[in-house]
Write a protein that binds this DNA or RNA. Sequence first.
DNA 1: ATAAAAAGATACCAAATAAGTATCAGTTTG
DNA 2: CAAACTGATACTTATTTGGTATCTTTTTAT
Lengths: 136, 136
Amino acid sequence: MKLITRDSDYAIRAISCIAATKGLTSVRYLSQKLELPYPFLRKILQALTQGGLLFSIKGRGGGFKLAKPAKKISILEVSRVFQGKFILTEHTFKGKICPRFKVCKLKKQLDAIEKDLMFKLKKISIDSIIEKDENF
Amino acid sequence: MKLITRDSDYAIRAISCIAATKGLTSVRYLSQKLELPYPFLRKILQALTQGGLLFSIKGRGGGFKLAKPAKKISILEVSRVFQGKFILTEHTFKGKICPRFKVCKLKKQLDAIEKDLMFKLKKISIDSIIEKDENF
DNA sequence: ATAAAAAGATACCAAATAAGTATCAGTTTG
DNA sequence: CAAACTGATACTTATTTGGTATCTTTTTAT
């Protein structure tokens, strides 16, 4: 099982590339550079824009840029746009929350792990994964 | 997104129940006790048996029991039966491993998180989540 | 011996999600 | 005005998830 789905993966690459570029970056350029399907990448960048991670400028010569510094964009934020909240397990019972909810030892342990996972993914910023000498 | 899928979840409950029971436990009994669909649970228990977590005895009066002590069965093992290996991201590029594989900073960071996640899930044993006074 | 009660093995099915395409509308600039 | 962009939205297709159904084999109680 994967924790980072394909769209999140593509998104991370695209954002990395945009972060490493001065000025605006167009989807056309990105899809060629990263060798990713143009229409799919377009949908992804649109979602990132709606999610507040990118800022877009329409019209000829338009494109995308980061909505905030690369240091302040985390992997967690990116994945949330496509994957929603991470939940270790719904831990439901017949459609309702497990009746043992309050005392359930499993839930307690999983919650702790989940919290830690969030924290760690939050700490990985786009900035931290860009190779500074990278030739995008 | 969920880290523990429904079949893993059901499996954990079933194993917990089996662990808390002396002798053999049949699917019929389990499905009634846990109020889970019989045929689905059956498939799950069969998979657990093939995965080496349960031991089965056929024929009338037959059923399942743990293949090893509850202390030695971890949530990780159970989830592996249904979800395979946890992989934070395939991090592929056109079907191949990312060309920046060796140096990729993202992969390095995700690998560390993944390793830690595995470790933690491995440490949650079935034994640790059973309420000792539980009335299965 | 035979029927009931169990698991084994498979094949199938439906809904949801993932992955991707297509298209039309609006915007900006040369 | 047309070329090069994004916005919005509606498909389409493939895969995975969450099951069901059915037939076979094994064991035991009667």
